[in-house]
Write a protein that binds this DNA or RNA. Sequence first.
DNA 1: ACACTGAGTTGACAATTGTCAATTGGCTCG
DNA 2: CGAGCCAATTGACAATTGTCAACTCAGTGT
Lengths: 345, 345
Amino acid sequence: MTKTLQRNVTPPRIKRRALSIPAEFDSDPVVWAAWLYYEEGMTQEEVADQLGVSRASVVNFLQEARDRNIVTIAVSSRHLQTIGLAREVADAYGLTNCLVVPDDGGRLPVHERIGRASARLLIERLQPDDVLGVSWGRTVQALSAALPEMKLPGVTVAQITGCSIGTTEFSPELCTSNIANRLGARCVNLHAPGIVSTAQIKRLFMQEPALVETFKIIHRSNKVLFGVGSVDDAGTAMRSGYMSAENIGPYLARGAVGVVSGRFIDRDGKPILGALDNQMIGLTLDEIAKVPERICIGGGSDKIDAIYAALNNSYATILVTDVATAKALVPRAARSAQTGVSRRP
Amino acid sequence: MTKTLQRNVTPPRIKRRALSIPAEFDSDPVVWAAWLYYEEGMTQEEVADQLGVSRASVVNFLQEARDRNIVTIAVSSRHLQTIGLAREVADAYGLTNCLVVPDDGGRLPVHERIGRASARLLIERLQPDDVLGVSWGRTVQALSAALPEMKLPGVTVAQITGCSIGTTEFSPELCTSNIANRLGARCVNLHAPGIVSTAQIKRLFMQEPALVETFKIIHRSNKVLFGVGSVDDAGTAMRSGYMSAENIGPYLARGAVGVVSGRFIDRDGKPILGALDNQMIGLTLDEIAKVPERICIGGGSDKIDAIYAALNNSYATILVTDVATAKALVPRAARSAQTGVSRRP
DNA sequence: ACACTGAGTTGACAATTGTCAATTGGCTCG
DNA sequence: CGAGCCAATTGACAATTGTCAACTCAGTGT
């Protein structure tokens, strides 16, 4: 029963028992089955007898109850933080929170697993009037897919980088609106390209009243959510047409090891400012660093350098990662503390 | 797996794997098992392989994870309200909410089932700075037992009737403090007998500075929770030594059909004021009726008259009951509407 | 009227999960 | 140091649950 819970991540269709009955009242047998099974601990057979249907139908009812969030089965993220490794990472890098998702022997890709855990974390941390700035990436996209449907009309979800040109499934605008939709929150998109052709054009854009208004909201973010990209793997950024190889070249030459919200950082986490930065529309790293709660999500051996850099310069107050990455991060922090590499307190 | 969830309603002991490990860090395998099983949908065997233990151990880990609220499995009360019958009752009596718990063929006693549902409702409705006044009774006690452990330090739980003399397991003071403990809320007990020997003594009590302070808090309740007692079955009240047969006699003679928070009501829900009322310490019915949100819990064929009376005079804004009672209540409301029996709008 | 369709249901089988008695392993106390 | 103890763990069996192909039946089109 747990099985299918994760197999149909997004249920392709919602079954209806009888088309004639208004949808509102249609759920009786589903709700009752859920109640008797999950609350009262009846077996499916007992439930079937009670409702006067076959046990197989009860299986279906329960499946539907889970799909429609009539029952909620959740591992509280508070407890994932108590895992020893998570505490080590948090202590080593001065994070307020750290989640470490356990290994699953390769069943699910890393970004999927991290997406789920961070989805849980996110909904547990969001407060009524929060403004959540979101960056983008595969992991952020996975997060949005793992969010349950909710109704948080007081919350605002804001896109903190301009849009990408290519149409991948994890563009900034999609990440933002998917998250907002799932949460039932207000969605504020940044209606501008992430990268424009010249610094001059950027200036023009930034003066546009509509964008000025949008940025007012973005700057009000009290929480940000961002993935970390490595530059080694040619970067998520390029694949989506967000940047080109020639643009990236100079940054690499100057020692870029990672990308945070479209901006390059070196091995110590310091921003590398180049020509491209004057063409980028979106929050700068310094602006991100001023947001009170900064949730960094990402993992995988190729991203260790990048995540280390980001943590090292305190871009994150909260990290969600996987066991392998966490294990690699702990000794590094210790080493750099010994050798005295700069790290903000 | 759901089975034991309800069998051990209150787990008799919490297992510890190794006494040498600090409790905080002890949960790793439990949390991981919970994550892999409930979030990722692995089978127990896969989890066992991943953690390197036997599958039987995984079963134990999962059991512990549920016991310790590392995973939460809950049927949202919002959906119990969508059941057709619940809407009918709510409409018939002008309630803002109504939960109807399904029949289970007599597996659990009525008050147990209603207790569970109302526990869920309660935690979903409580807001940060609420003051919840609680009455007492078997059902209220069942509610307290069904509450999960939480941390709601902003909430206050206040005892709205004085204490009982007899020591049953559902005395007013126990109901209140159990609920407060489970919720991690502030507990305000009313340190006085529920019934004193003379009106004179009641006046003395009520002047006591300590009680005056307590009543200030009680009067600040913005939510109340109460069960409904029938008088037919000699009443919960008597059994606990709260009242005696001779005290009750006059009320019965005057047509009492139910008891709400220790006070008698007639078939139309109107308070029956008698000698005893001047000896009772606690909120009066009129005071209760002024609280904005009034949660009435109870069911069973013997209580139908009493619940009807209570609803009829709008003592409740929310009702939690069972199918049989709900089915009996709906036609009554219709009838009384036709025959023009008084019912507040 | 009749076949067709498709959602909902079911029975029977396969897979997963719960139980429990037996075993292990660490710890204390004589 | 070994016996005794207790709790955690395990293997094997029993019970429960998930799957799936076959079936039902109301609505539709011809």
